[in-house]
């Protein structure tokens, strides 16, 4: 847990965190995951009504599903790249 913070910090320092995020975002857009999640969010908003839902509630509902829906190929690619970065000089 302690190391989590440290690792995060060094990723931020090197700028790699932003790069990885961008790569992940691109891959998730390409494979259609982004559209899926977007539709899911819209659905929930429609069901509850725009006035009755907060962003916090949405986040709670969608995050777990979002993680589950990430295609294996994308996961694999990102993990591989992150690990490669770890083994290089940080």
């Amino acid at each position: 847990m302690l190391y989590k913070t440290s690792i995060e910090q060094s990723l931020i320092l090197s700028g790699e965190k932003d790069r990885f995020k961008e790569l992940l975002r691109t891959r998730l857009t390409e494979c259609g995951w982004r559209d899926q999640i977007q539709m899911l969010c819209r659905q929930i908003v429609k069901e509850r009504g725009v006035q009755n839902i907060t962003a916090d509630e949405l986040i709670g509902e969608v995050t777990a599903k979002g993680r589950a829906l990430v295609p294996d190929a994308v996961k694999k690619e990102l993990l591989q790249k992150i690990k490669a970065h770890f083994s290089q000089d940080m």
Partner: peptide, 21 residues
Amino acid sequence: STEARKRKAFSCYCYICRCLG
């Protein structure tokens, strides 16, 4: 900028529990 990144890495954490998010 790198300067900004340094600030973010080292001074940006929860003042109560010290986590980064």
